[in-house]
Design a binder for these strands. Structure first.
Lengths: 96, 96
DNA sequence: TTTAGCAGTCATCTTTTTTGGACTAATTGA
DNA sequence: TCAATTAGTCCAAAAAAGATGACTGCTAAA
């Protein structure tokens, strides 16, 4: 038995990790920004948030967009794949 | 932001951990036994399987039953709570 | 021009998870 | 009676995850 015959494992891993569920949840409300997240999630730290964002992006759940407007900054959005996870996430919440 | 406003986090934690998703998945097919699991999950080890089973039981996902029949042994079953997780788990798999 | 905000990286330390191996104690089959 | 099977526990080591603090380089406002 390995990961190949337990498909849920990969998804589970994507959303586990210290700050990932919270980040995912906040992403439901719209664009995320690094320092805002850092302030919103009490007890979090740069390194962990950076890692979580990078991994969520690598896994294709979030999309990173450099906004070249007025105050040059970076935004993270839920990708299509990320959006597909929303109902599962909500179902998970409903069981808590 | 803490766990209390991210209800999915707890559930996610219950099924994360190296061998828990596989164990959960095998539990869908019926009773589990310690040594059988150990053989089914290549690369696993006693300690980890024991810990996963104990925690899944503590979380009320599995139920431990001592079968006092012929070859005295122990079986683990999905509890009602565990069964409630099945659709979420399957939905998760369908997205992989 | 100095200061603050943004979005990080890097090296290091600590904590948590996972593993490996030895051991136990009861039952069972040859 | 001896060996195997079952279902673990305990200790120690290794590996992975998370936290901390210093630092970078860019922009923008005072």
């Amino acid at each position: 038995m390995n990961e190949s015959n337990c498909p849920a494992e990969g998804l589970l891993k994507m959303l586990s990790g210290k700050w990932k569920p919270q980040i995912f949840r906040l992403a439901l409300n719209g664009a995320l920004r690094f320092n805002t997240l850092l302030r919103q999630m009490e007890g979090s730290n740069k390194q962990s948030v950076a890692t979580a964002l990078r991994e969520l992006e690598e896994q294709g759940i979030l999309e990173k967009v450099v906004v070249k407007q007025k105050p040059l900054h970076i935004e993270y959005y839920l990708s299509e794949k990320g959006k597909a996870l929303v109902p599962v996430f909500l179902q998970l919440e409903s069981l808590s």
